[in-house]
């Protein structure tokens, strides 16, 4: 059973049609990357799943272990960092946590994302890359069944990308190891490195699915790209 089922969803903004009749299914666990040229509605897709926008028609259903649920626990990393400027880095993370959850988990996540020294600073005192990592840390601290990340690695130093990706993979629902993470990205190498499945939008409502069954540590990124995306190196 999928975690998310998108059935005949249409969405337009004024004259601009984003989806005419989109049908998609996202697996119950793993990392799914969504790719495609600008304007194909990748961000709109995340906003529809997060219920920040409503479809004009069609429906989006959520399931946990095959049971239909109304409101899954969703965490989002927005394209803009969207931090509370009047809260410190740590407070930005703990404020989204369940009150029964130990706040030391936030310290743990911040440490993994190299933000321990910044935890008492305010967002205005951070660089763009640091703010982006705080935004990722906040989503991980909130936890949940579904993670929606809109270009989460944009603006990160190349040297940090890998470890931020690893932290993300390790901490998506760490207790049960069954969270679904949907990442919108433009970077094909990034997608091949991290994803279990890649959806590549070719046109409105049309997409290609690429499943990558090779363990992340042993992936030959270039050959996977050559084989599945007709790009040679």
């Amino acid at each position: 059973m999928p975690a998310i089922q998108i059935k005949s969803v249409s969405k337009s903004f004024g004259e601009k049609i984003i989806f005419k009749s989109l049908n998609m299914e996202f697996p119950e666990k793993g990392i799914v990357c969504v790719m495609g040229a600008s304007g194909f509605g990748k961000t709109t897709l995340l906003r529809l799943i997060a219920a920040l926008d409503s479809p004009d028609s069609g429906e989006i259903n959520f399931y946990i272990h095959g049971n239909k649920i109304k409101c899954p626990a969703i965490s989002v990393v927005f394209q803009e960092t969207r931090l509370f400027e009047w809260l410190t880095v740590k407070e930005n993370c703990t404020v989204v946590m369940d009150k029964h959850k130990n706040t030391s988990y936030a310290d743990e996540i911040l440490e993994k994302l190299y933000l321990s020294n910044e935890k008492d600073k305010y967002p205005s005192q951070l660089s763009g890359g640091m703010r982006q990592r705080v935004s990722i840390a906040r989503a991980l601290c909130h936890g949940g069944n579904i993670f929606l990340l809109d270009e989460p690695f944009k603006g990160l130093d190349f040297s940090l990308r890998e470890s931020v990706m690893n932290t993300l993979v390790e901490n998506i629902n760490p207790e049960k190891n069954e969270g679904l993470c949907i990442i919108v990205t433009h970077d094909i190498r990034e997608a091949v490195k991290i994803a279990d499945t890649i959806f590549v939008f070719n046109d409105t409502d049309e997409f290609k699915i690429v499943n990558i069954d090779i363990p992340r540590q042993t992936r030959d990124v270039n050959s996977i790209i050559e084989k599945n995306f007709s790009i040679s190196f």
């Binding site: 997060a50 219920a51 920040l52 626990a73 969703i74 965490s75 989002v76 927005f78 803009e80 969207r82 509370f84 404020v95 989204v96 909130h142």
Partner: peptide, 15 residues
Amino acid sequence: NLTEVTKVFGFSRFK
């Protein structure tokens, strides 16, 4: 944008 953050992370009215 921050109002959307409070919605997504399920803040109560009081919070």
